[in-house]
Design a protein around this nucleic acid. Structure first.
Lengths: 185, 185
DNA sequence: ACCTGAACACCGTTCAAGT
DNA sequence: ACCTGAACACCGTTCAAGT
């Protein structure tokens, strides 16, 4: 896993092949298939490892109580949840940004093993504590995660060969505006 | 292009290889590289073809005037634009849904040749006529397109091997709520 | 202008056989 | 329990050479 994650971090998904990984480990390709059913399973593990970053660890148990002076409008409970949602989404963004092709990898894991990605399930829970019912939370979570992954992919591709022009979408602005609508009062 | 699109439609991206395409055309692989610089360029063309579907064609020139009885709130201008945005996003969704792996293909094109995907640039324009400034429209467009592509990918994967359970995200609900926030009054 | 033949450097997966 | 060797069936891309 260390070697696999390192390969992804340094060279991207194109160089995270079973054969390359085996070479790096000084082992025959076939050996990998004793530890892992197939490549997809490896990628699920890699995604879980990336989303296991300390910055994404769950906070202290129970609903966190912040004492900062928060802006106006709405109940304190609501705003608190909104702030934590915003923070989680932003942390996801900055965690994935430096890992090439991380959106593809996370997407594989999201499909094959949702539930293995704790921060994403936590996001759904936060949306529920913000007042959404189960169905709403699931729908909003999907939209937010799509936004995070899509924005990271866009930024990474832009860095590869696009104009570094200033007409890049504003991740945070769109996220905040969408949250306004999703957490309707 | 017909053969390539057909291959994608019938078997998905895994079977849309240069070699498979050449075999289907009863031609040597190398021949393809006279018509196309590389596979990515082929995929851009394929994406443009898919988004060229009649259902996604631009309406009659100039801002369309519908006479239907629209709900309350806001100015008529605003609501009209919102309706057209909603309709375009929904049409994108239903157009891509039956084409396996279309989100991946469109994403490649979105990165390598934005502007070749007319319906997506039109979406940005609609967001501007809905009252957003250029930067806001670009950011909102990215979020909406991410939502459409992500939702289609999710639905396609779900169909492949997931529980057909009812806990699927609600594409339309999330889109409408996010639009509420994005087109803030 | 358009295509063939053939090569180069890769893939993921399987599986008998070894230790 | 864990790995090797070797095979199978694929990839994308390039390029001299043909017509």
């Amino acid at each position: 896993m260390e070697t696999a994650v390192g390969l992804l971090r340094r060279f991207g998904l194109g160089d995270l092949s079973m054969r390359r990984l085996a070479r790096e480990l000084e082992v025959q390709v076939g050996a990998l298939y004793w530890h892992v059913k197939n490549k997809q399973e490896l990628l699920v593990e890699v995604a879980a490892a990336i989303l296991g970053a300390p910055a994404l660890a769950a906070g202290p148990d129970g609903p966190e109580r912040s004492a900062g002076g928060s802006p106006s409008d709405g109940s304190g409970d609501r705003l608190d949840a909104r702030g934590r949602i915003l923070h989680l989404a932003a942390t996801l963004h900055t965690t994935l940004l430096p890992v090439p092709d991380s959106p593809e990898v996370v997407n594989v894991a999201r499909v094959l093993a949702p539930g293995r990605l704790e921060p994403l399930t936590r996001l759904t829970e936060l949306l529920e504590t913000a007042g959404l019912d189960r169905a709403g939370a699931v729908s909003a979570q999907a939209m937010i995660v799509n936004h995070v992954l899509g924005s990271v992919a866009e930024a990474q591709n832009r860095a590869d060969f696009d104009v570094p022009g200033s007409d890049a979408p504003d991740f945070r602005w769109a996220l905040e505006r969408a949250l306004d609508g999703l957490l309707h009062p």
